[in-house]
Amino acid sequence: MTASVGFGFMAACTLVSAIFVVRSKNLIRAALWLGATLLLTAALYAMLDASFLAGVQVLLYVGGISTLLIFGVMMTRKHEGLVVEAETVNVPRGVFAAGALFGGVAAAIKMTPELDSGVRPPVVTANDLGRGLLIDHVLAFEVVSLLLLVAIIGAVVIARKRDPGAEVPGFVRRPLAAKASSAKPVANEVSP
């Protein structure tokens, strides 16, 4: 009983902070709320005896992804002053997508007969997970890592300039000579 009350409380906290993520006008605050949401999700995992998953969730999502998001906001947006504005768009579509996802997951849970038996599932330890990933399902694991490799190479290709001499759109290359000639009159003014 105490456990389910605790779980309900944590789930409610997760939901509230998730609402703050989408309702926050300040993008940095939204990113920090997202960090809090992911942290609370990790707490839910820990309560469900999936402690390894909880640890990885904190390490990768809270430590990695939310930091990346913050970096992204800071590097792409002009931040004059403190508030980086976020606008809320497509509310009905968002609500529909969230509702559909919730309905799908809820239906899947309802249709799983094992959940009604009341038997607590066995605790999967980090050891079991390691064996599963690196011995039993090693091929699938490696294919996933190949996918990540493809993503990294893709990112590098997109980020790299195609040709060092090529014109970058929106960037006017000013020859060095022009700069030097524009600097000259100033020098003359200083020492006539």
């Binding site: 990885v56 904190v58 990695g64």
Partner: peptide, 8 residues
């Protein structure tokens, strides 16, 4: 994980 949180 806690070390990763320190950046926040």
């Amino acid at each position: 994980a806690i070390g990763a949180l320190m950046v926040i």
